[in-house]
């Protein structure tokens, strides 16, 4: 297998950077919304798992 340049040049390369940011931003917002809406009791329970010596 050789690496061949299939295209002569790239136009609108900014789409790569924009999509990168878009993907991250979406995930981040979704995660943040979830984290703030999550059930406090459940989080407390999971959070104490390392201290459960059973």
């Amino acid at each position: 297998m050789k690496f061949i340049n299939y295209l002569e040049k790239i136009t609108g390369v900014d789409i790569y950077a924009m999509s990168a940011f878009g993907i991250f931003f979406t995930i981040f917002i979704v995660m943040a919304i979830w984290a703030f809406k999550a059930d406090r009791q459940l989080l407390t329970k999971i959070n104490s798992l390392p201290l459960d010596n059973q």
Binding site: M31, W34, A35, L43, I46, P50
Partner: peptide, 26 residues
């Protein structure tokens, strides 16, 4: 795991740990 063990108290914010995880690997 080990910091809560050594301090004998749970992590400060589990919410933060979730956001921390996904943001970091992304």
């Amino acid at each position: 795991y080990f910091l809560p063990k050594a301090a004998n108290r749970p992590v400060y914010s589990y919410r933060l740990s979730i956001i921390h995880f996904w943001s970091l690997i992304f």
